[in-house]
Write a protein that binds this DNA or RNA. Structure first.
Lengths: 346, 346
DNA sequence: TTGTACGCGTTATCAT
DNA sequence: ATGATAACGCGTACAA
């Protein structure tokens, strides 16, 4: 077992000073060609790699990005991570991931932990509980310390920082309009409780789409899920009670359960009723019928968030203090769950 | 914007020496009650937190675990991360995640990056390409440097280190036996190419289960998928060509596609044919019919891997050099895709 | 009871 | 052309 090689060891071995070694390895013109070659050869032979921690301490930069997420068993967040990772690596950054599990306390803990020198900045989507409590002191604190933060998806309007979002309300409108165009008359929505920002926005889009088409908004057709664990039963129950010919679900899990509810009710999808959902993941693609979705382009959001963060990190000074909110275009991906001609229904 | 507080600043502010501050904050008895209180009050007021990087450099420990994964848009790996995260946090460790995207080069790069001071040890599942090339020098190197490594799921037999696996072959047998118990006579398997260790083992279990029951192994009933992207078409094609009454898929995506193939062929699941798969994720649960699975208990694997790693990190000396291979029990979760009485078939 | 000195690994600056 | 020194932030052995 050979512990990692340090400059000091090389210096001792080659009988030169530490600074000579450092300079030689960085190709400083100060060092004679001869010694430089000797040192570089030695370093290469024994596979010397500078210690990141020491560099971080010296440079006061870690070249590490912290991602804080509510959950990870969720294709959307997983693809976001992929996007961040890719951009980060391209720029020589590492990625630290922490999960809040939708708990406020864990979010605070994680951010404090990472803020103490582990990361140069944050990319985060806030926990459900945080949005509920509306307590954002930990975010303010981190920003106050001069660490850039980029929020995505579940963002907090009150916090001033870069943001990457999709137009949730617009995406929802697209989805509902799609259902209306298929001649749906009684459209239900399966969404989350209102304190989840994106849930609220999608509900808003749903309502606006109905109104724009001169349709009644019936509160009874709106199901707000609080607990993911028990969502399936709740959804099936809801579907069975209501007489709906079109369902808009705010995520693919809800969409899948909606289809199940419809089937149990004896309705065929897409013939008797159609279903569309947000977040285009593995489930939507492999499901039978495959689910039409509003894609959030998670990888793209992650990539964009990483770019924004790195840009800010590498900006020479804090010259530009304007913060951007980037809106990623959603797209409607039609699959089997809404695949029918207009005439089929009515 | 107030930059982070350091010991030095507190010392200057309170007109004492840095070490006095350090000791006071660590409740050293050397410091008088009075100054200790004064310093602690000040630190608390301005929310002093020691800098992790400096601590890492000093202690030559980062209290960070590096996870290297082939992919993340995959419930199995996502749940593993969850398990690691939980245990790590409990012990005050951070988690850095790097994705290899199944590329050998990226795996090597990531590990080198993390090994240069960013982590104390690794938890990893090797990339497909790495298993194909059978080039493990990067693993050996890291281990040689004295960094503990715990491999899980896709492990490498040639590398000596702690491992957390499931008995893939045994799990596959369980699955196939389940199909046989349902009176299936022509059982097919949808698996991965052989160089993926777990795929190979599951194929082995499939074959052994058939043989144990005195059934013929027909190579034509074995489909080996190379490219995940094109898997769905390949699977449907395979199913249509063969006359199978039971399908064992090595992951839930393949399982879902198998059901689709059967349906397109005009067969009903589970009435005319049954399907069971490995890896119990969101897809299996929400799918229609919900998929019977062999659960790999990802969270448990992750948790166990983290425990093994932390144990080794915190062991006083390198006294115990024996390495463990922990086998997590798989369990068969029966759902709709195999829900029928023995008599239904034949 | 408090302060000084040193070291973790690196680099930048300033001698020699 | 090379080396010594200081500094990044912290903790600790030792000195006062």
């Amino acid at each position: 077992m050979k512990p990692k090689l340090t400059l000091k060891q090389i210096a001792r071995e080659l009988d030169v000073s530490v600074s000579t070694v450092s300079k030689a390895l960085r190709d400083s013109a100060e060092i004679s060609e001869e010694t430089r070659q000797k040192i570089k050869a030695f370093a290469k032979l024994y596979n010397y790699k500078p210690n990141n921690i020491a560099l971080s301490l010296k440079n006061r930069k870690t070249r590490t990005i912290g991602i804080v997420l509510p959950e990870i068993v969720h294709d959307f967040f997983a693809t976001v991570i992929g996007g961040v990772e890719q951009v980060a690596n391209k720029h020589g950054y590492n990625v630290i991931i922490c999960l809040s599990n939708n708990s406020f306390d864990r979010e605070v803990m994680n951010m404090e932990m990472l803020a103490n020198g582990s990361t140069d900045g944050f990319i985060l989507s806030v926990a459900k509980e945080t949005q509920q409590k509306e307590d954002y002191h930990h975010l303010e604190e981190v920003i106050n310390q001069g660490m850039p933060v980029v929020m995505f998806d579940r963002v907090v309007d009150e916090i001033v920082c870069d943001k990457v979002i999709i137009d949730d309300s617009e995406g929802a409108k697209k989805a509902v309009q799609h259902l209306i165009d298929l001649n749906c008359r009684k459209i239900g929505i399966i969404t989350t409780v209102d304190y989840v920002s994106v849930g609220k926005l999608r509900t808003k889009g749903y309502i606006e789409a109905l109104q724009k088409n001169g349709m009644q908004v019936d509160e009874e057709n709106i199901l707000k899920i609080e607990d993911m664990e028990r969502s399936e039963e709740e959804i099936i129950d809801f579907i069975k009670k209501r007489e709906l010919d079109g369902i808009f679900a705010v995520n693919e899990q809800f969409g899948a359960s909606a289809v199940r509810g419809l089937k149990e009710k004896g309705l065929e999808v897409p013939k008797d009723a159609v279903v569309i959902s947000f977040s285009d993941g593995e489930l939507s693609k492999r499901f039978i019928p495959s689910l039409s979705t509003i894609s959030q382009h998670g990888a793209e959001m992650g990539a964009r968030a990483a770019e924004l963060l790195i840009e800010r990190l590498e900006r020479p000074v804090e010259a530009d203090e304007r913060f951007k909110t980037e809106v990623i275009e959603t797209s409607l991906i039609q699959r089997e769950s809404t695949l029918r001609t207009k005439l089929t229904s009515v």
